[in-house]
Write a protein that binds this DNA or RNA. Structure first.
Lengths: 202, 202
DNA sequence: GTCTATAATTTGATAGAC
DNA sequence: GTCTATCAAATTATAGAC
């Protein structure tokens, strides 16, 4: 019995991830989720009392996937350039698998900002942030890299790693029409980290 | 009478822009739009037959705001580095005024991909694209910049210009908590273009 | 746990008076 | 053009049998 319960629950979550990601909280239909999970609405409500409850679980999962790599980067003790290569590789790997997550999170976050505030504390980041900011400042002082605000460098890394995936529905039409953008994005991680390092290296 | 008609219409559009941008097509409520426009639902339907019709107008406007700067960049006849500075400045100006547009467009585009296809032809871009790609290739051959795929350079420029605005609801919490991110973004255009030029310049 | 049937609400849209 | 009142459809949620 427990076996079946868990299996059904996983079916529901898998269906909910796909449909919430594509249509958002407001656009998703419980009926559609039930269909995709191979059950009916009543049973869906039996497992998750409300649409809101189901959504919260999916949202939290996705949020961790999005912020996890950043936390890992900030906490990483490697040398700066290696760290940059690491986060680019990691984000490109995660985004290739879940390209819809950035929009999903950003969107629902602007619809209801309180959603993020609840999750902020779950993902510890402050300590790593200080450490990495210090590391960057040190690299500047010792003349290893050009002067740049540490937060800005981090923001640039994230922008270059995430936006191409998030914007794919549009940018594919404009820049890579008829070509294999999958292939482009797959091999992009290395080029991005070199693009960044070239910019800051003295 | 014409005066009033146009004024009401503009009130409706202003309300619709805000609410559609924040909540999306599915999440927006006609009642809420009517309230924000200072009229009632019946009158709202009198001006725009359906929610879908109203949405289409708002979407098309926003789409042009997002893609316009790119088209201008591609068609620009200036020297390459100046062009890069121009598009960064332009995008930062537009995004400061309409920071919600990127998510809005990307989101509705993935919900219903056909929406973009309809608009693609409105914004002529192919000619400029070829010209700029050629210009970049030439800069590489003459040893002015390092080798890079022209499309990738363009994508990097756009990513660095747009993502920080789009992701603000989240990144503000992580990177600039308690600070004035408005100020940061306002002055960012110059730093971004220099970041890019530093990276490609030999 | 799983289903069918149905209640309860929300919401886009229209009718009709002024 | 603008309003009040109301309809019709869609959708979340629950009751109750098996």
């Amino acid at each position: 019995m427990e076996k079946k319960l868990i299996e059904t629950q996983e079916n529901i979550l898998a269906a909910a991830r796909t449909i919430f990601a594509k249509k958002g909280l407001a656009g998703a239909r419980m009926q559609e989720i039930a269909d995709a999970a191979g059950i009916n609405k009543a049973l869906l409500h039996y497992y998750y009392r409300s649409k809101e409850k189901l959504f919260e679980q999916v949202f939290e999962e996705a949020f961790k996937k999005l912020v996890g790599p950043l936390a890992a980067f900030l906490a990483d003790d490697s040398e700066l350039f290696l760290k940059i290569r690491n986060i680019c590789t990691l984000y490109h790997k995660v985004m290739a698998e879940y390209p819809f997550i950035p929009n999903f999170i950003i969107n629902e976050a602007s619809t209801d900002p309180s959603r993020i505030l609840k999750l902020l504390n779950i993902v510890g980041i402050e300590e790593g942030k200080k450490k990495t900011a210090m590391q960057i400042s040190e690299a500047i002082e010792t003349g290893k890299i050009r002067p740049i605000d540490p937060r800005e460098l981090i923001l640039n890394i994230i922008s270059l790693s995430i936006f191409p995936f998030a914007s794919r529905p549009i940018s594919e039409q404009f820049l890579y029409k008829g070509e294999d953008m999958d292939e482009v994005l797959k091999s992009r991680a290395n080029r991005v980290s070199e693009f960044i390092i070239q910019s800051i290296q003295i």
